[in-house]
Design a protein around this nucleic acid. Sequence first.
DNA 1: TTCTATTGATCAGTATACTGATTATCAGTA
DNA 2: TACTGATAATCAGTATACTGATCAATAGAA
Lengths: 153, 153
Amino acid sequence: MDSYDVMPGHLVRRLQQAAVAIFQAEVARAGYDMTPVQYAALTAVRVNPGIDQATLAGLIAYDRTTITGVVDRLTQKGFLTREPSETDRRARILQVTERGHTALREIQPAVEQAQRIMLRGLDETESQEFMRLLAKTVGAVNELSRAPLKATR
Amino acid sequence: MDSYDVMPGHLVRRLQQAAVAIFQAEVARAGYDMTPVQYAALTAVRVNPGIDQATLAGLIAYDRTTITGVVDRLTQKGFLTREPSETDRRARILQVTERGHTALREIQPAVEQAQRIMLRGLDETESQEFMRLLAKTVGAVNELSRAPLKATR
DNA sequence: TTCTATTGATCAGTATACTGATTATCAGTA
DNA sequence: TACTGATAATCAGTATACTGATCAATAGAA
């Protein structure tokens, strides 16, 4: 177990880094500058308009302190609005702007292409098996990270 | 493809984060404060005494600008020494100290335990298949990241 | 209803990762 | 040998992640 090539953690780290690089390259090709993290957050808000930051964090398994900066940058780019909630004055309500919707629509093909490139080493059968095992693995360690996925209320 | 649960990049990101948390928790239980990244670097130097930073980076697929900080911290903790090379005045030669060897020895069980916890959702057959597919996937995208793995000379 | 515990957001500080630049040095060529 | 291009290390700046703290506001219990 001395060899890092055999260690799952090391391989996952490398795949994660490649995935980020691939994503950014494909999205840049579509004319946008957006990270995978920003994309996931934006997509989650589109599916759940008016969501607050804490719920969003649980939905996509982000740390609560990370979400602040991510939303900051998406707001700066004009893709999100952040307003105080009327029912809970602690919370900030998020909405996707028109520009945000346009961006999501226009980078959609790039995102799908990025997924394909990421799995280009596997054939169709292997890809499905890999995804199944990956999801199963992640599900079993969900509560062990500071930012576990939380089911929507 | 709207759901991030189905997106490989998102799942890999979550697994990576869980893996880091698991690793640090197990290592802390053994009385040490070391990140997976620092551990991999230290292990690689142990296997390749006198390696320079650039070669080390290629060996474990780290970005060259990242390795500087990692080595900084390992040196500060007294686990590594960094000295100018005598044959190439640009290069810095790395060696594991006595304390570094002790640390590696003492956290070894924790590292193995972390691997097991990370894969606790899979049975033995699934684990092996997952590792095979993971390695295959990583191999196919190696050159797409800024820090590809490079074979030893 | 008052008190306590919790929660939403944020901040300061640290550790990866990466982009792009710089500096010193080396290697290979004209 | 002088020059050019490549390489080793580092730096400044940005974006995740996380630890631990704070503050305002809410919710639940006594």
